[in-house]
Structure formats: C-alpha cells, structure tokens
Design a protein around this nucleic acid. Structure first.
Lengths: 138, 138
DNA sequence: AATAATGTAATAAAAGTTGTTACATTAAAA
DNA sequence: TTTTAATGTAACAACTTTTATTACATTATT
C-alpha cells in the first residue's frame, strides 16, 4: 500500500539541505545533485513546499530557495501533508457490488479505519520537527 | 507515499466475506462478484492470505476458501503485513550523492523514521481484529 | 544587454498495478 | 471412471502512476 513514490523522502531531503545552508539561495540544480534526480523534479517538489508555506523561492539570476521559517517550526506532519496523495492504507476498490451487503457498505467502514490510521500518523509526525531530523547530520 | 494499490482493501473485503459465511467454501468468482474485480486477482490475494495463515483454500469441485481461524484471532496488523509492499512513508531515493554529507547519510536516518512509523501503525492495527471490523456489517 | 535562475507545459520513459486468457492440476460428484 | 468445477499460476496485455527530460517564457541580478 503505502506510497509507492519518493515524494516524502525527496521533500525531507530538500528541506534538510536548506536547513543546513541557512540564508543561502540554493538552486534546484544544486539540490538535484545531492538527491540525484532531475532538477525539474526538485522544482516541482519545491512548488508543493511553497504552497505549504515551508519554503520561499526567488526567480532570476542568483535565485533559488530557502526555508520560509525556522526548521524548529516545521513539523514533519506539515511536510507529509504537503506531499501526500492517498491514505496510509492505500486505495479502496471503487466499484464494489451495491447488491452485496458487504460490498455496499465496506467503503464507509474502510474510510473510518483509514482516517484513524491517518490521524495516528499525523499525530506522530506532529511531534517531530525538521530541526530534530536535520540536526542528526551535524 | 502510501500504497497506491488496493491490496489492503481487497484483502479486508475478502476476509470480511469469509467471516460472514462461516463453514462455507466461497469461490473466488463469488468473492470477485462482491468486490467487482477479476477472479484471478482474488485468487492471487487469497494466495498471500494463505501464506500468512489466515485462510485455507481447497481445490477441485466444491472448492473455495474459508478462514483458517476465528476472526477474533485475526488482527488487522497480520492482514496488513500479508499485503504490504513498501513502508508507510513511501520509498527512498536510491542514488543519493555519496559525496554530499546529507545525501550520503539520509537513507539511514529515513530508515529510522520509516521504521518508527511502521511500528506505530502496526501497534494500532494489532489492537483491531477482523471480527471487530466484520461485525459492523451485521 | 547578458546571464542565470524559476515555473511550467508537454511529452517520453519507466515502473507499478490490475485485468485477462489459458490451462494444468485437483478433487468432488455423478 | 467420467464429468464437472474449482484452485494455482504463468504469460501477457492494458492501464495508471511516477519519474525523467526537453523546451522555453518569465524573472531578476549583474
């Protein structure tokens, strides 16, 4: 189930680099060199992180990105929220049989369960800051 | 991140049907009719659930599947374990730059974080039985 | 004016997921 | 013993998601 993508890992990587280079406009190309992915992938992820208010970017020559606030004030939950796409336990079958008592109702009950797991994960990640994660590399 | 597949939902659906039809050999075709997926998909999932010791299947005429034990003794954690493929928070970037202090070490630290989230999820799902889930439909 | 960055569209390539066909094997029932 | 009807599984097709790439308009500094 879980995400079969690397978006959370990529976002954390980006943010950790930014935290380790405060007051510096890091370019997407430089960041991409550390993660070893295409710079456009980094720019797209930076877009999501900007929307979430976690980073600011500057266009033009000498442009780049830096953290929008102290890493102490960035929870991993906010990072997860910025990149999440589906629920933790995966997707639901979309065309279950309405004439079966189970098939008819199962998605309602799965929704409850999925939401509970998402809340739990959110709660854990809320207790962890980017700073906590990032300082492990010092 | 999360699973972008329907395996957990499918497995729960199958098991709930089996629980609601005790002592009956349900066929993959009948089950597939409730989920509205191909019977081969159901048989593949049943294979995983058999390996996990959650169901037993019988070949041949009058064959089918039933629960291997009481639904009271089947935790949702064991179901999740049977179908999981990646970690909750997704995948890691596989080719991070070894010449970057962050890129060099990040997967070690992400592994710690990912394991912690997986343990938390496992703990929650351990407290929930198939019976609890299944009886919601009665 | 030249340079160098972001933002983003469009598309290609790769990977993952689900669906389908086919059939050997198995076991009950006729 | 033959017929019937199920699983198990391989092989492959179709679809969806994810990642990579190219291209370039826009922006802003030098």
């Amino acid at each position: 189930m879980q995400m079969s993508n690397t978006r959370f890992a990529t976002a954390i990587h980006i943010l950790t680099l930014l935290d380790h280079n405060p007051e510096v406009w890091l370019t997407s190309e430089w960041i991409a060199g550390s993660i070893n992915v295409n710079p456009v992938v980094v720019r797209k992820e930076l877009g999501a992180l900007q929307e979430a208010g976690l980073v600011i970017s500057r266009k033009g020559k000498e442009g780049g990105s830096m953290l929008a606030k102290s890493s102490v004030d960035i929870s991993l939950a906010s990072v997860y929220e910025a990149v999440r796409k589906t629920e933790v336990l995966g997707r639901k079958n979309q065309h279950t049989n309405p004439r079966c008592p189970i098939g008819k109702e199962i998605n309602v009950k799965l929704t409850d369960l999925f939401q509970e797991t998402d809340r739990l994960l959110n709660h854990l990640l809320t207790t962890k800051s980017l700073h906590d994660f990032s300082e492990q590399f010092r």
